[in-house]
């Protein structure tokens, strides 16, 4: 393991020097076994064939309930997604839509599927439990057709990745969390 890691670290530090980037691959300390509640405030971008958005988000997660608000930089709510035992609700443009799961609801309303149940893990730098994992040479992982890259800030490493990048087909998403609670 150590023999394998050394050239990888060496390569990434060379890369770091070359590009003057502060990005390094994130490695979770341990794989979490049980889901824990969290609150994360950050920014996200969505890119579908070169069209997309940059927005702020606020996500309150608990195993039985999620509230994900997407806001403008100044804090005005653009959309709010809630999930609980009764199902999933999306409020946006003065309308309220419900469905049984987030993936189906976002596919119907946004035209792309937000992988919320997996993102619960990915945003914390963990692979989603119970799903096949393919580990790629560059440190990213593949699950359910998504390629996920976990990025840490070399100058401020923390228990969670600073940025998570997801891509699948013509869709890519990035999430940066600036405040965990």
């Amino acid at each position: 393991m150590k023999r394998f890691l050394t050239p990888v670290l060496l390569a990434s530090s060379l890369l770091l020097g070359a590009c003057a980037t502060r990005d390094v691959p994130f490695q979770p300390a341990v794989q979490a076994v049980a889901d824990q509640p969290f609150t994360a405030a950050g920014r996200l971008s969505v890119n579908v064939d070169g069209k997309g958005h940059v927005a702020n988000f606020d996500w309150q997660h608990a195993p039985e309930r999620d509230t994900l608000s997407v806001t403008t930089p100044v804090g005005s709510t653009v959309a709010r997604l809630t999930r609980d035992a009764a199902g999933v609700t999306l409020e946006a443009d003065g309308k309220r839509r419900t469905a049984t799961d987030v993936e189906a609801l976002t596919e119907e309303t946004l035209g792309w599927r937000l992988p919320l149940s997996n993102l619960v893990w990915w945003i914390r730098g963990q692979t989603a439990p119970g799903l096949a994992v393919e580990r790629l040479p560059d440190g990213s992982v593949r699950q359910e057709g998504w390629t996920i890259r976990f990025v840490s800030d070399a100058e401020a490493p923390g228990p969670y990745p600073r940025r998570v990048e997801l891509s699948r087909d013509r869709l890519s998403m990035r999430l940066v969390v600036h405040a965990w609670q």
């Binding site: 920014r43 971008s45 997309g52 958005h53 940059v54 940025r163 990035r174 940066v176």
Partner: peptide
């Protein structure tokens, strides 16, 4: 224009 440096995205 909105540019977020860490996201490395402009809209």
């Amino acid at each position: 224009w909105i540019y977020d440096r860490e996201l490395a995205q402009v809209t």
